[in-house]
Amino acid sequence: MLDFTLEGEFIHLIQLLKAANIVQSGGEAQMVVSEGAVKYNGEVDYRKRLKVRRGDIIECRGKIIKVK
């Protein structure tokens, strides 16, 4: 599990995937989200501009990100 410390109120899902080194680019992040390869708090989510906040858990490519 990766712990990601949020510095603001939220981070967009695509930005989080890049910041956590799950994907290499924004285009790749958009692709994995649109393919349904990302879970937000246990549910598949297709929103690319999703605002991820403290306490949320993101799963992608076998990795789990806990936002603090």
Score class of each variant (00 low, 15 high):
M1F: 00
D3W: 01
D3N: 11
D3I: 14
F4D: 11
T5S: 09
T5C: 01
L6I: 13
L6E: 09
E7Q: 13
E7L: 12
E7V: 14
G8N: 15
E9G: 01
E9S: 14
E9Y: 00
F10C: 08
F10E: 11
H12V: 14
L13I: 10
L13C: 13
Q15I: 08
L16Q: 09
L17F: 12
L17P: 12
L17Y: 13
A20Y: 03
A20F: 03
N21M: 06
N21G: 06
I22N: 05
Q24W: 01
Q24N: 15
S25V: 02
G27Q: 13
E28C: 00
A29H: 08
A29G: 15
Q30A: 14
V33K: 15
V33M: 14
S34F: 06
E35P: 00
G36P: 11
K39P: 05
Y40I: 09
Y40T: 04
N41A: 06
G42P: 10
G42H: 05
D45S: 13
Y46E: 04
Y46K: 14
R47C: 08
R47W: 06
K48H: 07
K48Q: 13
R49L: 11
R49S: 13
L50A: 06
L50N: 08
R53W: 00
R53D: 00
R54L: 03
R54E: 08
R54S: 10
G55W: 01
G55D: 03
D56M: 05
D56C: 04
I57Q: 11
I57G: 02
I57L: 08
I58P: 10
I58F: 04
I58A: 06
E59T: 13
E59I: 08
E59W: 02
E59D: 04
C60V: 15
C60M: 09
R61D: 03
R61A: 09
G62K: 08
K63P: 03
K63D: 05
K63A: 09
I64P: 00
I65G: 04
I65E: 05
K68S: 09
K68H: 07
